[in-house]
Amino acid sequence: EADPRLIESLSQMLSMGFSDEGGWLTRLLQTKNYDIGAALDTIQY
């Protein structure tokens, strides 16, 4: 079963217009401990 923190973070990022095609966003959020800010910083640079 998916981590509730992942579901919450992923749904927030999907609502911002990101896609999780191929699961890349799920993996990114997992490596950033479900921190949306850290994930966005990684995507920006």
Rank of each mutant, 00 (worst) to 15 (best):
P4E: 12
L6V: 05
K32N: 11
E8K: 13
A38R: 09
T31F: 14
R5M: 09
R27W: 09
I43T: 02
L6E: 05
I43N: 03
D41F: 15
G37A: 14
G17C: 06
S19V: 12
E1C: 11
I43E: 02
A2S: 12
K32A: 11
G17M: 04
G17F: 03
G23C: 07
Q44H: 14
L14R: 08
I7C: 09
D41K: 15
M13Q: 00
P4F: 12
A39E: 01
R27S: 13
R27G: 07
L10M: 08
D41C: 10
Q30N: 09
W24S: 05
S9T: 11
K32E: 12
D3S: 07
D41Y: 14
D41W: 12
G23R: 03
S19W: 08
M16P: 00
T31A: 13
F18Y: 12
S15W: 06
A39D: 01
I36K: 03
F18E: 01
P4D: 12
L28M: 05
L25W: 02
E8C: 09
A39K: 02
D41H: 14
R27I: 13
L14Q: 06
L10Y: 05
I7R: 10
M13R: 00
L29A: 01
E1Q: 13
D35Q: 06
Y34C: 09
I7A: 11
L40Y: 07
S11Q: 14
L28T: 02
Y45E: 14
G22C: 09
T42L: 11
I43F: 04
G22M: 07
Q12Y: 13
I36Q: 04
L28A: 01
E8F: 12
Q30H: 10
N33I: 05
E21I: 12
L25P: 01
M13S: 00
S9V: 12
S9F: 11
T26R: 07
D20T: 02
S9C: 08
Y45C: 14
Q30P: 01
P4A: 13
Q30W: 07
T26S: 11
R5A: 09
N33P: 02
L40G: 02
D20M: 03
P4Q: 14
T26V: 06
E8A: 15
A38M: 11
R27K: 13
F18K: 00
S11A: 15
E21P: 04
S9D: 00
A2G: 10
E21M: 09
M16L: 10
P4N: 09
L10D: 00
S19P: 04
K32C: 10
T26P: 01
L40K: 04
A2Q: 11
N33K: 07
R27A: 13
F18T: 01
T26G: 06
G17E: 02
I36F: 03
L6N: 02
T26K: 05
M16W: 14
Q44C: 08
G23Y: 06
A38T: 08
D35A: 04
F18M: 04
Q44P: 08
F18H: 04
D35M: 03
T26E: 05
A2I: 14
A2N: 14
D35H: 08
N33S: 06
L14N: 06
A39N: 01
M16C: 05
F18P: 00
